[in-house]
Amino acid sequence: MNLFETEYTLNDNSKHVGKVASVENASLTNIQLRAGEEIKEHDSKNEAFIIVRRGKVRFTIEGEEVFVTPENLLQMAPLEKHSLHALEDTDLLLIQVKP
């Protein structure tokens, strides 16, 4: 068993991206963004799941917009080009599943 801390740091900082854990077939990253902050378009070789714990984020994936909140979950296939824009102060978890 492991218990990982994901401290909310936006009270003191702007954008925060930090690796939380890595295991044989997955990695977990905590991303915190202030409203209006963005992460530019990129892709990943791994399948990814986005879990928003706080806030609201607009993802643009291969030209299509989708809104991710604490009420839903986003899955992206490997190599899908995407960017994100925080509509509210946001705290999310990125889980990348390694092949």
Score class of each variant (00 low, 15 high):
92 L>Q: 07
93 L>T: 04
50 I>S: 06
85 H>D: 06
40 K>W: 11
20 V>M: 05
87 L>R: 09
53 R>C: 10
65 E>L: 07
40 K>E: 13
6 T>L: 03
94 L>T: 09
14 S>A: 06
5 E>M: 14
36 G>A: 03
30 N>K: 08
11 N>M: 06
27 S>P: 05
87 L>W: 10
54 R>V: 00
45 K>T: 09
15 K>F: 14
52 V>D: 00
54 R>Y: 01
94 L>N: 07
12 D>H: 15
66 V>C: 12
90 T>N: 06
99 P>T: 08
65 E>S: 08
57 V>F: 05
46 N>D: 03
34 R>I: 14
29 T>R: 10
47 E>K: 13
9 T>E: 11
87 L>K: 09
24 E>P: 01
17 V>D: 15
73 L>I: 14
70 P>N: 04
15 K>P: 15
48 A>L: 04
25 N>W: 07
89 D>T: 05
80 E>I: 02
28 L>R: 08
73 L>S: 09
32 Q>K: 03
42 H>P: 01
23 V>W: 07
34 R>V: 15
82 H>V: 08
79 L>I: 05
89 D>R: 02
35 A>N: 04
75 Q>E: 15
29 T>W: 06
15 K>A: 13
3 L>R: 14
52 V>W: 00
55 G>F: 00
50 I>L: 09
38 E>C: 03
88 E>T: 04
23 V>P: 01
33 L>G: 01
70 P>I: 03
92 L>M: 14
84 L>Y: 03
19 K>R: 15
23 V>G: 10
2 N>L: 04
58 R>K: 14
43 D>M: 10
29 T>I: 15
43 D>I: 05
26 A>Y: 09
2 N>S: 07
93 L>G: 06
71 E>G: 03
76 M>Q: 09
93 L>E: 06
71 E>I: 00
69 T>H: 14
49 F>D: 06
12 D>Y: 11
76 M>G: 10
98 K>Q: 12
56 K>D: 11
42 H>V: 02
87 L>F: 10
84 L>N: 03
50 I>F: 13
52 V>G: 02
15 K>I: 14
7 E>F: 01
24 E>W: 04
22 S>R: 11
79 L>G: 07
88 E>C: 06
32 Q>F: 01
67 F>A: 05
60 T>C: 04
94 L>Q: 10
48 A>N: 04
33 L>E: 05
4 F>M: 10
47 E>G: 12
12 D>E: 15
42 H>I: 05
69 T>W: 12
57 V>Q: 01
23 V>Q: 11
13 N>W: 12
33 L>T: 08
68 V>H: 12
4 F>W: 13
4 F>D: 13
48 A>I: 13
87 L>V: 11
40 K>I: 06
69 T>D: 12
51 I>W: 05
19 K>T: 04
99 P>R: 12
49 F>M: 12
24 E>Q: 07
67 F>M: 13
